[in-house]
Design a protein around this nucleic acid. Structure first.
Lengths: 327, 327
DNA sequence: CTGAAAGCGCTTACAG
DNA sequence: CTGAAAGCGCTTACAG
């Protein structure tokens, strides 16, 4: 293994100078720097990050906190982990996962999956820089998905396809995300001069396929609508099943769209795709920047979701026509 | 931060003794050991893994090689990464991802996503212990999914539901996995005294939704069957779409099942779920064991997939009956 | 602009 | 069974 010492010898300088070329090149005379750089290239020197970390009192380890309630093999978490890994690897950082705040080892920073309530005590508990996925009441770097915008855009999209009577399957729990999606829907209607009607909203209490199924199965509001916008893909699938049972054909009789898009590799549902993988990348990026500069301005990033057109939606002009049927 | 030195002082021993208690406790007198252990607990001492790694000439970093052709946000890769991370984190190792074999930094071991052909030169290139996902012609630790068994079991499952004429949608490329799935299907028929018929096989060349769609859309073999076993979920979804277009109702007229199950959180397809997340965990586990004991016997692990019953399959006794329709 | 020396927190022959 | 000393490969005041 090539060490800084070897580079120093080859370049005819001290080890300290090599270190400077690597970490503070502006302090080194151009000519010396050139000699060192050549030696580095010649010997294919790569710094030993373990030694560097020890000397700097760093670890090059980032912890990702995922609450215990959330399984690591959920699609959201998998997307997140992959995105984070991709960026950290590039920057020579590595990742560990934790389910609580008692970390088994030192780290340089943390990524926290939003815990909406408990945040107040977080800042005192965590003694390293951290970044949060989701809203944060604290003055802290965070990344979130623009649920409002995604929902707004999807509603506009449906309107552009000729839909005016758009049913909304709403999820009624304290999760801000679902509220934002509902707001986006309403505002898009408003901005298109379509009156928002309570009679076109169907409520369920949790994001469950079965609840959505039941709600749609026994609702009569369907007949008034040409499109159904579900708050999540999971509920869209429940709704889909209910519609089929009622012999309503999709998208011939009604368009059905969802929100999340985490499995759109295999689910042919028109939906709003949350860029969770990108969220992961951005979280990692922002955290590393923060580690390298504690005093920089707080970052608040809102990533835009994207509409994925698939087989469950169509134009109103095609209503009743037997086209390519959806799954 | 509490160091070994602090523990040593409190226990009234040398730093070396503390190190022994941690790494080779059998060399330490019981009484001394007890004093040290108490001090460790009292001071909540946690070893500094960076320092340990440097002294041991280790890194505690594992590289995961994923070929460039394969995107990190594919479901398989995400499952894998999450599973690997879960185990490594537990063992205080961390992970980095690489897309080639020029590693930017030292590591203690590698996890290689099977590269079926190129394996011959691998052993010489990689100078650290490694484990492979997939078959390997080399004499190396590896983990794979039992595709044969999954397919065999699914076929048996369909037979147990009364199906005898089971169409198989086969993918005809060099990927061994697809061959194994086909073999499992044939053997299950054989073992159930059902004659295998070429006329019940439909071929496509790649695992693509559209190819499956076309193959099923224009095949007349469907009419002869009560069940359709597709080699992948993706092809099952294409097939599903084609069937719907032909006004064939699922599972009323025909059962449709797939293979993969990576998105079954949201896809209500009866399928064989590949335990990719568990594959990840096992890969990590085996690698760490190998790192700690280079001379142990080679591990060849075959994980069993699992049948997930969902809404696209049913009993032949219910054929033609209008039940809970599937998605 | 450059270098000698101490230090980061561990492990590991070697000695006793 | 226990300990003194050197070493892992870097960084960082400090001095010049």
């Amino acid at each position: 293994m090539v060490r800084m010492k070897d580079v120093a010898e080859m370049a005819g300088v001290s080890l300290i100078t090599v270190s400077r070329v690597l970490n503070a090149p502006e302090l080194v005379k151009d000519e010396t720097k050139a000699r060192v750089e050549e030696a580095i290239k010649e010997l294919k020197f790569v710094p030993n990050y373990t030694a560097k970390a020890l000397a700097e009192n760093k670890t090059r380890v980032i912890y990702l906190y995922i609450p215990k309630e959330s399984s690591l093999d959920e699609l959201v978490n998998m997307n997140l982990i992959s995105g984070i890994m991709a960026h950290l690897s590039e920057k020579q950082y590595s990742l560990q996962i934790t389910r609580n705040f008692e970390l088994p080892q030192k780290c340089d920073g943390m990524i926290i999956i939003g815990r909406n309530g408990l945040e107040e005590d977080m800042d005192s508990k965590i003694r390293v820089p951290y970044v949060v996925f989701g809203r944060s009441n604290l003055n802290v770097d965070h990344v979130d998905v623009n649920n409002y915008k995604g929902s707004y855009d999807m509603t506009k999209y449906l309107i552009s396809k000729g839909h005016k009577d758009i049913l909304f399957l709403k999820i009624n729990n304290e999760n801000i995300r679902f509220n934002e999606r509902f707001r986006g829907y309403k505002d898009a209607l408003l901005d298109s001069d379509i009156k928002f009607k309570e009679s076109l909203v169907i409520d369920i209490d949790e994001n469950q396929e079965q609840l959505a199924y039941l709600a749609i199965r026994y609702s009569e509001k369907i007949e008034k609508a040409t499109a159904l916008f579900c708050s999540t893909d999971l509920s869209a699938i429940g709704a889909y099943r209910a519609l089929k049972e009622k012999n309503i054909v999709i998208p011939k009789d009604i368009s059905v769209v969802g929100f999340d898009g985490l499995a759109n590799e295999v689910v042919p549902l028109t939906t709003v795709k949350q860029p969770i993988y990108n969220v992961g990348e951005r979280l990692a990026e922002i955290l590393i920047n923060r580690i390298n500069n504690r005093s920089k301005e707080i970052e608040r990033v809102l990533l835009e979701p994207q509409i994925i057109e698939s087989k469950t939606s169509g134009c109103t002009s095609l209503l009743g026509k037997d086209l390519n049927l959806a799954l």
